[in-house]
Computed example of a mutant assay.
Amino acid sequence: MTSSHGRGLLHLAAAIDQEAAYDVGSYVESARLAERGGLDFVTLGDTFTRPGPDALAVLSGVAPATDRIGLVPTVTTTHTEPFHVQAAVATLDWVSRGRAGWRIDVSTTEGEARLFGRRHAAPADELWREAGEVADVAAQLWDSWEDDAEIRDLATGRFIDRDKLHYVDFTGSAFSVKGPSIVPRPPQGHPVRVADATEGHARRTAARYADVVLVRASSAAQAAAVREQLRGSAQEFGRDPDSLRVFASLLVDLGDGEHAAEPGHGGGGPRQTVQGPLYRGGPVDLAELIATWHTNGIVDGFHLTPTEPRRDLERLVNGTVALLQHRGLFRTFYPGSTLREHLGLARPANQYAVTGGAS
């Protein structure tokens, strides 16, 4: 598959958050629309302070109603049990047949801490260090079953080859996990890990563990600088920087139909607002902005959050994406079936099977 750095494949993703929507049908509708446009994945946010359904559970319901699009819920690593988190994400990968991602986040407020009563709020840099440990142990637990650990031999009654199950025995700063997982190795090996690295605290964790990094940047120069920093850090951690996908994260308001973008929103880039970088204008100028940033190697893709979910996602798919497809800049069909394939990322080798780690 073509390398996706520089001027390779363009990647697109969209948020399908809807305020206080409890009907899974509305999320299915949005995910299907994004899938019709060939988007790599959709995200669904979640926090302990937001009223609304559990993002991971909602996307597990969306999975059987979609075929190709990646499904990426936010699951915080603060106040949650790493063993449960990895098992839930692995289950989403099985339910979706290899289309799961996991947007890693932390919970920084005292109000969120009080919901659990186990500990007080901690500084962001400490929580992101912990998030890195959770990402690390999750990968080890996903690998704790080798791909062919299941035998399912009815004649002998053997379900598992015990030699192909591995104990993890991980001790982090705030938790310890033995393993093995209760869920067999996911179809993708490791579901795709996504992190927002706009804030400096998250950057080292994102560079070390994330497959996709989101950056809320209001200028091409800012996005390019963060991408370069992330790629450099990834290399320091022994990773191939070309295995990192850096997406510009933008709010999009396409309510102006075909009108040109407002000054400061169009070709010159989005405008910084309290909510984050915002593009306001028509689908045509948004396509131009995306094409320009990607062609110039500023970012590998875009994560777009509609300000008006139904209206803007429809205009995004039928307008902006259609224009990018027409120009040959974005796919018209999915060449593969897993989220890793959409992103041009290899399926990771099992660390235990490769090294013959002690079981």
Rank of each mutant, 00 (worst) to 15 (best):
H303P: 01
H294S: 06
I151H: 05
T91S: 14
A149Q: 02
D17R: 03
A234S: 11
S243G: 10
D253K: 03
D240Y: 12
D253S: 01
D240T: 12
E110W: 08
P73T: 08
A248R: 00
W102S: 01
Q272T: 11
Q188F: 09
R310M: 10
A139L: 15
Y167Q: 12
L59Y: 02
D312Q: 01
G6T: 07
P123C: 09
A88F: 10
E262L: 11
R152K: 11
H201I: 14
R327D: 09
P180C: 02
P184D: 00
G172W: 11
R119D: 13
L10D: 00
A217F: 02
L329T: 07
P186D: 02
N318D: 14
V168H: 05
D242N: 14
G45K: 09
R32M: 13
G157C: 06
D46E: 14
R158C: 11
E236W: 15
H326Q: 15
R193N: 07
Q188T: 07
L254I: 01
R310W: 10
G232W: 13
G38P: 03
P277H: 03
Q275P: 09
H166S: 04
D17M: 03
R208L: 09
H265Q: 05
R347G: 05
R327Q: 14
E35S: 04
G25Y: 12
L278S: 00
H342P: 03
H259N: 14
Y167G: 10
G297A: 11
S4Q: 01
W128P: 04
P309N: 07
E146H: 09
E112H: 11
P51K: 10
V246N: 00
V42S: 01
G200N: 13
V284A: 11
W102Y: 06
D54C: 12
L313Y: 03
V246I: 10
P64C: 10
P270A: 08
L71A: 04
V252G: 00
A14N: 05
G357D: 08
A346I: 14
V246K: 01
G52W: 04
R327Y: 15
P187A: 07
P184T: 01
E308M: 08
L343H: 00
E130Q: 13
G356M: 08
E81G: 11
Y22D: 09
S218C: 07
T77R: 02
A139W: 10
Y209T: 08
R204M: 14
L127F: 06
A346Y: 13
A20W: 14
E112C: 06
W293E: 01
I160L: 10
T295K: 12
P123D: 04
Q222R: 13
P51F: 10
V354S: 09
A260C: 08
G344M: 02
R103W: 08
T109H: 09
R310K: 15
A349I: 15
G37F: 05
A195R: 07
G25I: 13
H342W: 07
L9V: 04
V168R: 05
R340H: 05
G132P: 06
T74C: 12
R204Q: 14
D253N: 05
S337W: 11
V246P: 01
R185F: 09
V317M: 05
A174V: 15
D143K: 08
T156Q: 12
L10A: 03
D242I: 08
P180D: 05
A224H: 08
T320A: 00
H294P: 04
L289N: 04
A223Q: 03
H11C: 01
S243R: 12
R203M: 11
A210D: 02
P277L: 00
I151D: 03
G268A: 13
T66F: 10
G8Y: 03
L10H: 02
